[in-house]
């Protein structure tokens, strides 16, 4: 059996889900027997060098770059997995939904209690910076997502079981303790 190719990315996430992937501990040695990694922060490959079997998405979409990367993953991966609450429902970044963007930027850069050094009262507005979206979107509202693994972060056992089931084509056994929303 040829190795499956996996790509991963963190959009509007905190990298906690990636930490949880690493939390499979010594099973990572078994994982490298089963898969090879392509574009991923884990190996620092920046662009897809081949079509991948599985794309793992952490985080929702809060800016234009997130959307671009997500679409790039959809084009280059046969199966996409939303990993964690942020990818599934926007997560904590989505708590800004319903608050106007201007208000968020003012709080972060001008009026917030910890803002001390922005004496020139600058709001980030460089054309190099990705544009913030009006809301934070769950990934499946932007592209088609095939599987969802909830959790904040998803339990390592859930990630491991799901990946092994997907790679070997077996049914997934979901013990009660591993599917959690927090």
């Amino acid at each position: 059996m040829s190795k499956k190719i996996i790509a991963t990315t963190s959009l509007a996430g905190c990298f906690g889900c990636h930490m949880s992937i690493l939390d499979i501990d010594e099973r990572i040695l078994d994982l490298v027997e089963l898969v090879e990694f392509n574009k991923s922060p884990i190996d620092d490959i920046k662009v897809f060098t081949k079509q991948c079997d599985i794309g793992i998405i952490e985080g929702g979409c809060c800016n234009s770059e997130n959307i671009e990367v997500l679409k790039y993953f959809r084009e280059n991966c046969d199966i996409l997995i939303s990993l964690g609450e942020c990818a599934i429902m926007g997560g904590l970044p989505a708590m800004r939904n319903g608050i106007p963007i201007e208000e968020c930027l003012h709080e972060a850069y001008l009026d917030g209690p910890t803002v001390k050094l922005n004496t020139q009262k600058i709001l980030p507005n460089d054309s190099e910076l990705p544009m913030l979206l009006n809301e934070v979107y769950p990934c499946h509202e932007i592209v088609k997502i095939d599987y969802f693994l909830p959790g904040c972060a998803p339990r390592a056992d859930l990630i491991w079981d799901a990946l092994v089931a997907l790679i070997t084509g077996n049914e997934m056994d979901l013990p009660y303790e591993v599917v959690k929303f927090d």
Binding site: I88, I99, E141, F148
Partner: peptide, 12 residues
Amino acid sequence: MMVPRFPYSFDK
């Protein structure tokens, strides 16, 4: 429930 089948409203 892995993901709701309905879109989120995010009603503030």
